[in-house]
Every structure is written in C-alpha cells, then in structure tokens.
Design a protein around this nucleic acid. Sequence first.
DNA 1: ATAAGGTTTAACCAGTTGGTTAACAAATAT
DNA 2: ATATTTGTTAACCAACTGGTTAAACCTTAT
Lengths: 204, 204
Amino acid sequence: MSKKKDKNTEVQILEAAKTVFQSKGMDGARMQEIADTAGINKAMLHYYFRSKQLLFEAVFKNAFSLLAPQLNAILNDDSSLSVKITNFTVDYNTFMLKHPYLPNFIIQELNRNENFIEKLKETTGFPTLDKFRLKVNEEITKGRIIPIDADQLFVNILALNIFPFIGKPLIKAFANQDEKSYKTFVDQRKTAVVDFIINSIKKH
Amino acid sequence: MSKKKDKNTEVQILEAAKTVFQSKGMDGARMQEIADTAGINKAMLHYYFRSKQLLFEAVFKNAFSLLAPQLNAILNDDSSLSVKITNFTVDYNTFMLKHPYLPNFIIQELNRNENFIEKLKETTGFPTLDKFRLKVNEEITKGRIIPIDADQLFVNILALNIFPFIGKPLIKAFANQDEKSYKTFVDQRKTAVVDFIINSIKKH
DNA sequence: ATAAGGTTTAACCAGTTGGTTAACAAATAT
DNA sequence: ATATTTGTTAACCAACTGGTTAAACCTTAT
C-alpha cells in the first residue's frame, strides 16, 4: 500500500515551522497552524521538540546556518577585495530572491531577543572579521584602494545587500513599484551595488 | 489635594503603547502591560481607542510621521546633492540614536502587514521621489556626478543609514562590539557614510 | 444641591493558546 | 506469538487575552 511513506515526521515539522515562523514571527506563530501546515497532530510538535521555544530555536539556527557560509566566503577566502564584493553581492542577491522571508526573520528575532546571538556565537563557523580587516588594510597599504575603516566597509556591504529585502514595503511605496518592478529593481542591484561599492573605494 | 492632575489620559496611553509596541511588536504586546505602563485600568485603553488594532495604528502613524519629514527634506529641498546627503545622514543618525527602536518597529510592522503602507500613502506628506530623480539626472547631465540610477542611489542612501540600527545585534556580534563601542561605531558613520556615498558618485 | 455628562474601576467573559494525557496503533525485539 | 518500545491521535486543561459591563466617581452646568 503506497501509504505515502512520508518523509521523517521531524523534517515535516521543521519545514512547516519554518514557513509559519518566518512569515508570522515567534509571537505571531501558532502551534496549531504549524501542525496543520505539516498535516499532523499538534501533540507531535511537543513530542519531537518539547516546546514552542525549542522548535523556534531549531528553525532559527537552521535559517542562520544558511547565511553564515556566504558571509564566511567573503570574509575568509583569498581572492581580491573586488572579487569578494562581486561574488558576495551576486550570490547573496540570488539566494535571497529564493528565500525572501529569511533576512527579515533573522533580523527581527535577533532584535526581539538580544542574548539570542550569544548562543549563535558559540556555534562553529560563526563569521569573524579578522581576515577581512587584514585584507582591507593590506590593499590600503599597497595603495589599491583609498583609506577606509574595514568594519565600516563591511557594514556598508551588508547594508547595501540586505536592506532592499528587509525594506521591501518601503521601497515599493517610495518608488511606486509593483511586485514585478520591485523584482527587476532588486535584480539590477546585483551589478549596481558592486559598481557603487567598487567606485567608492577605488583610487582614481 | 495635589492629585497629580495628570497629563491627558489619552496621551499617557499613547506613550505607554509606544513603549510597549515598539519593543514587543504588535503580536508580542499585551494590553495589560500597556495599561500597567500607563498606570491606569485596562478598560481605559478600550474607552479611548476601542481596540488593540486601532491603538496600534495610532502609535504606528505617529512613529511614521516622525520619519517622513526627514525624508522629504532630502527629497524635496533645493540644495545640492552632496548637501542633501550630508544633511540627511547627520540628521537621521542623530535622530535615531535618540529613538533606537523606531526603525526596527516600522520595518517590522510594514513587513507583517503588507497593505498597511497603502493607508500611509494616502497621508499628506508621504515622500515621493519625483524631485529627487530630477535633481540626480540634472547633476548627471551637467557632468557633476557619474551616471547612476536615481532610485538605486536613493535606496543606497537609505540602506547605509537605516541598516546599522536594524542590524545592531548582527553588527555587534560580527565586530565584537559592546554597547559603548557600537555607539562609537554608529557615531563615526555620520561622516563615514557621507564620504562613502559622495566618493562613489563623484567624478574624479 | 443636584442632575447630567464624561471618566475610571473591579469584576467578569468567551475564545484562544501552549501544553498534557491516556488510550491506541505500528514497528521492533524477544 | 507476544511483550516492549516508538509514534500518533483526540480530548482535555489551566492560563492567558482582548474586550465588556455595571456600578462608582468626578466635574460642571443648572
């Protein structure tokens, strides 16, 4: 009997929880809705994850672990600064167009629970700026780019790439964009942001 | 009897609601907590604002109306582009250091309720990009700045200024900042961001 | 003083929420 | 075969939530 021999129930729960938590947030999410989305009994959520809080943390860590590698790529590989920036911008934008709720979800929940990020810092693979700082200062010393604080540059790169996804409703309203023109706009940023950053740090 | 002849109850409620909504969000906020914060009976909230939703909307519109004038300043005054950028960056950062919850609150709630911004657009004084676009294109034509899409430039300016406040927990974690060094970092952005933007659009 | 209006309160209410439980089913071990 | 463990369900529960109500309290006009 092809009894739909489902995926692991645990995985189904995680996927449903991801969907609900990312669109409603911790406070707005309902355990019943997660159960319904997963197509299972609510008691199962507690059987596998014990509490809403623990289920949420599982989803959150999962989401964060999707972003960390992309950050580590720009922070720790050995390519030139402009290649790093280009790769990160293109990769990040491409990725986010497929996971539009992710950035807002992470930012929102980190702000809701300030000491949440402390737990994440203990995770292996949590990004550090050390190597990026060295690289930036090296390129400054070699006269390839203008003097700039590495941390400020890093935040600028993050800001220019992340904000359009978090501020989507604002941008659509200000620029009078519908869903289609917003997507075009974001797509064009893959090159526009790279040009903007490179231009702002290069020596002319 | 100096019976503390309080401020208007309505104002007390709005202030308490602002505090609670901005730190907990719509879903996380509790009417009882707002009443306690205001030091009044919970029934008063409904007496003056009828429902949680209406109280929330009052607080939200109030918050948004603090930001609109700053945006309109950069978008509609007649100063040069670099002056606009400088003024906006300095003003915005100064203002946000005093209202740290504001940007996250607005962004978060706009994302939670997509059609919320439609109501705001009907408000008088809702920022438009028309004049800013003309200004940018004019400076491009006159050869004062490099060619750049005005909308992209506008979003870049917003991103560089707003993100550090929304992404505070991330930035603190990545750059290993405590509260004090974070504030120093943000303060330095008042000039760092201006330099960054000006440099990226000026002809060399 | 007192009637009338708005303001404030404690107590209450129905619906919702995260979480539990006891019984049942399916798989696994003996 | 049958005992044991693991997975699943419906029903239940206590706590909480936004909202209501009826009575009390002020203020003010008459």
